[in-house]
């Protein structure tokens, strides 16, 4: 029997598998809902700060939903905090968020501290990964990095940062290089703690915000640098890009990963025909997950699989109010789907 870990790694790498896995990667797309926290007895915001609680919550999610991966952290603020941003850790129902940027002027980026992977919440996440990998689970551990543009715009007012792309592109690259160096350090520490898979999500660096030209110039090379530098340290990788992707199919094709995770605004069929070499992860609407009946969620899962999704997952961050029954219904879709009934082959 193939283990969930082998199945997901093979699926992400485009190899032949018996059926699609169902995952919720973590980070901005984490799976901790209020209902799950209550059942597990591990709650936000404490679970962002205590490695055991973080690990217990990640394990509890899989236990309760049948989700086929463990994923940490549960937010996108670990890196920014380690680099000097003030973070509000939120509440039971609200994710942590950046409350204050450490940088006023882009020129001063050299004054920012680098990420110390053994300290603060960066160290806590690595410790949580160690707990998870030593927990005798057959589930793969996905560690999540905040994408370079999202991290950069968590360290300085985004308006200032985006304007600099036009006025001081060299400076923006220097800054992004520094940001990326730090992401590599943090990513490496989580992988060394035993995680097998890395996911980079960059919701702040979408085509809709940057446009195709700036996406190619500022987002793509820095994401690729992380993937290339850490290659050999992970067994599989994926990149999540929010928003519509139609006008950056060429750039998406150049991402140094096999697997692309997509939002619900992107058409699966169009993406599949434009990017034949890529494995597509996605894309059940999080609104549907929160509000629809389980039957409808499952039917939507079937539809995703039929259209060419290889790995089923939510399209974006799920609401903490999402009912457990709907997450279970999503998972049941990969078990009950008739894999003969596909428009596009998606199992390698």
């Amino acid at each position: 029997m193939i283990t969930p870990q082998d199945r997901l790694i093979k699926a992400l790498n485009g190899q032949v598998i018996d059926r699609s896995p169902c995952i919720c990667p973590g980070g901005m797309m984490n799976m901790a809902t209020t209902e799950i926290m209550q059942r597990v007895g591990s709650y936000w915001p404490e679970a962002h700060k205590k490695p055991q609680d973080m690990a217990r919550l990640a394990l509890g999610v899989c236990h309760l939903t049948g989700m086929e991966n463990l994923g940490v952290p549960f937010c996108m603020t670990v890196e920014a905090e380690a680099m000097g941003a003030k973070v509000n850790l939120g509440s039971l129902a609200n994710e942590p968020r950046v409350a204050e940027y450490p940088l006023m002027k882009l020129e001063d980026w050299e004054t920012l501290p680098g990420i110390n992977p053994g300290k603060g919440r960066a160290g806590i996440v690595a410790e949580a990964v160690s707990y998870l990998t030593s927990s005798k689970t057959e589930l793969p551990v996905i560690v999540n990095l905040t994408g370079p543009i999202s991290l950069a715009s968590s360290l300085i007012e985004p308006m200032v940062f985006f304007k600099a792309m036009g006025k001081k592109p060299e400076l923006v690259h220097e800054f992004l290089y520094f940001v990326t160096d730090n992401l590599i350090v943090f990513g490496r520490s989580m992988l060394q703690a035993g995680a097998q898979i890395i996911n980079i999500a960059d919701p702040g660096g979408t085509e809709e915000i940057l446009g195709p030209r700036h996406f190619a110039e500022f987002a793509l090379p820095h994401i690729n640098r992380i993937l290339n530098e850490l290659q050999g340290e992970y067994q599989a990788s994926m990149v999540h890009i929010c928003g519509r992707l139609q006008s950056i199919f060429t750039e998406i094709n150049q991402l140094a990963t096999n697997a692309i995770s997509i939002d619900s605004t992107t058409s699966i069929s169009k993406l599949r025909s434009a990017l034949r070499e890529k494995v597509v992860v996605g894309n059940i609407s999080t609104y549907l997950l929160q509000n629809a009946q389980p039957d409808r969620v499952k039917a939507t899962g079937f539809n995703c699989l039929r259209k060419g999704i290889t790995i089923l997952s939510p399209a974006c961050g799920i609401s903490p109010a999402t009912p457990l029954a709907n997450l279970q219904a999503m998972v049941s879709a990969v078990h009950d789907f008739d894999y003969q009934n596909r428009e596009v082959s998606s199992l390698g």
């Binding site: 308006m159 304007k163 792309m165 915000i209 940057l210 446009g211």
Partner: peptide, 14 residues
């Protein structure tokens, strides 16, 4: 018309 994106629009406003 998607000729300009956020960075361009911000520079125009400046």
């Amino acid at each position: 018309q998607e000729e300009y994106f956020v960075p361009e629009l911000l520079l125009c406003s400046d």
